[in-house]
Amino acid sequence: MSEHVHKDYTGAKFGMWLFLFTEVLLFGGLFVLYAVYLQRYPQEFISAGSELDVRFGGGNTLVLLTSSLFVAMSITALRRGQKTLCQGLLAGTIVSAAIFMVNKFFEWSAKIHHGIYPGSPHMSEIAPGESVFFSIYYITTGLHGIHVVVGALIIAWTMFKIKAGSVNAGDWVVLENAGLYWHLVDLIWIFIFPLYYLILH
């Protein structure tokens, strides 16, 4: 097929951005919930927040920032014709996503082991402000975790397209949009980390 296929890069990218804006408002709603309850229960939020481990949150911040760097560099690599490097960087991103989720698994397991999970008997005994904190924590980081998994799947799919050659140095908008989605996952975490893990005073 040598016929000219019309490609609208601006349209494709703008469509992705419009979708990301809806994601911003989706998570924005959860952050509004956080802000309202923080205003109502400042002391309870501090005592509940201090039970979260900064090492998990900080470690995952490092993992996501680095994975974002990999994705950003992979676009440069693809466009410069460095296909192997590009695939390596994308594989590194998927490994980062896996590390993030394993961290999350251990973090949630420890919390659940201590009886802190939605609907647990312990949650109905602690102060209402603290149980609200943990409920919003689970829904926000849970929804974010789903985004990490979906992002990794999209990147894996993009890697297959690069391998097949349908995404290449001259036609990279699929990788660009997959990257934009991944960066959004990183952006959301940039706000989750200080608000949930660093609320100490």
Partner: peptide
């Protein structure tokens, strides 16, 4: 915390 997070977001959005 919010100011630093916004600055970080600005860097991610502008460059990455």
């Amino acid at each position: 915390a919010l100011a630093i997070a916004s600055l970080k977001s600005g860097l991610v959005v502008s460059f990455f």
